[in-house]
């Protein structure tokens, strides 16, 4: 299977693993400065939500944009990690960084279990299998004891970072979330531009050829699946600390759809697309929340128009104009 036409052909003159291009570095720097002062401009919880979803979308993009695998069940890792992290904070009394770590590990394990089965099928079957397993996980979350069923896990304590620095206030927590999500996105960037990322690209472009070159394609696919699940989990675990809540919303199939939408809108296979896409979608949900189900309709329309007219996504189009990969 290939999603090669999802990818705007980047005009690369230098080896992709040769370190970060100046343009990317500049954008990351601007983004970081912007995020550092953002809590003075907008409500910090909203900004934290955007950052969590940006990391979620970036993790999803690792799998779709660079691995060429469309998972329609990423809510399982996002929401699963959110449950585990919330449980760890509330019941085990772990500090936030440990809770997030435990949640991330849980998502990675879940990704390993589901991924090792899902990679046995390709293309749309892969999408259906991941969706079905995510739905299975949803039923598990609905019925299991520790998830609290319809109520979810509520009033999760925020505690103190390393047991020393209290992060009860939104402002203090903001910088923790900034560090986690920004660090996560940079790490994903590093993965994509590593030799491992290059092999992924080769598999995406031409799987039989990658096999004939001696790569164990399924191991690479499983590896990228687990990595993507782990970072989706990192995002979900962090979100549970922000909202002090883990609920069924985060494991529902509509969440899996939302992360696809964010990535598609921003630009599949771009570095900055998922960040922009997540920002737009979360902002839209925030301001249109009073419109109820119209939000779903609008999301559907964006999907349809995006697929028909706008397959490169916003950042993909800009990248084409600039003739530089973004």
């Amino acid at each position: 299977m290939s999603v090669s036409d999802l990818q705007p052909a980047p005009n690369e003159r230098r080896p992709a693993t040769a370190g970060m291009p100046k343009l990317h570095m500049a954008i990351f720097a601007v983004l970081f400065v912007l995020l550092a002062v953002l809590p003075m401009l907008v409500y910090p919880v909203f900004a934290m939500k955007v950052m969590c979803f940006a990391l979620f979308a970036a993790a999803f993009n690792l799998l779709l944009g660079f691995g060429g695998l469309l998972s329609f069940g990423h809510a399982a890792y996002f929401g699963g990690a959110s449950y585990v992290a919330a449980h760890a904070s509330k019941v085990w009394g772990l500090t936030p960084e440990l809770s997030i770590l435990v949640g991330t590990l849980a998502a990675a394990l879940l990704g390993l279990a589901i991924g090792s089965l899902a990679i046995r099928r390709q293309g749309i079957y892969f999408a259906m299998v991941t969706l079905a397993f995510a739905q299975m996980f949803y039923f598990f979350a609905l019925q299991a004891d520790f998830t609290g069923g319809e109520d979810g896990i509520q009033s999760v304590p925020r505690g103190s970072l390393f047991g020393i620095f209290p992060v009860d206030s939104n402002e203090a927590l903001y910088y923790l979330v900034l560090a986690v999500t920004f660090g996560g996105i940079l790490f994903l960037y590093r993965i994509v531009h590593s030799p491992f990322g290059q092999v992924l690209k080769a598999i995406r472009e031409n799987e039989p050829r990658a096999i004939s070159l001696g790569y164990r394609v399924n191991r690479y696919k499983l590896m990228v699946f687990v990595l993507s699940a782990a970072f989706a989990g990192l995002a979900g675990a962090t979100k549970s600390q922000v909202f002090q809540l883990a609920s069924l919303t985060d494991v529902h199939w509509s969440m899996s759809g939302e992360v696809v939408l964010m990535t598609l809108l921003g630009g599949v296979g771009t570095v900055f697309g998922p960040i922009l896409g997540a920002t737009i979608v979360v902002t839209m949900q925030n301001y249109l929340a009073s419109m109820g189900a119209w939000v779903t309709v609008i999301q559907g329309v964006i999907f349809v128009l995006g697929v028909l007219l706008f397959r490169e996504g916003i950042v993909g189009v800009i990248s084409k104009w600039l003739k530089r990969p973004l």
């Binding site: 999907f303 349809v304 397959r311």
Partner: peptide, 28 residues
């Protein structure tokens, strides 16, 4: 019809969007 020459996944994404639209409208 416009998607047949593309990867099959686009058909999945498009019909997913259509499902959201229909379900959203009826929920309204």
């Amino acid at each position: 019809r416009r998607l047949y020459h593309l990867d099959h996944l686009y058909g999945l994404l498009l019909t997913f969007g259509v499902a959201l639209i229909i379900q959203g409208l009826f929920r309204n």
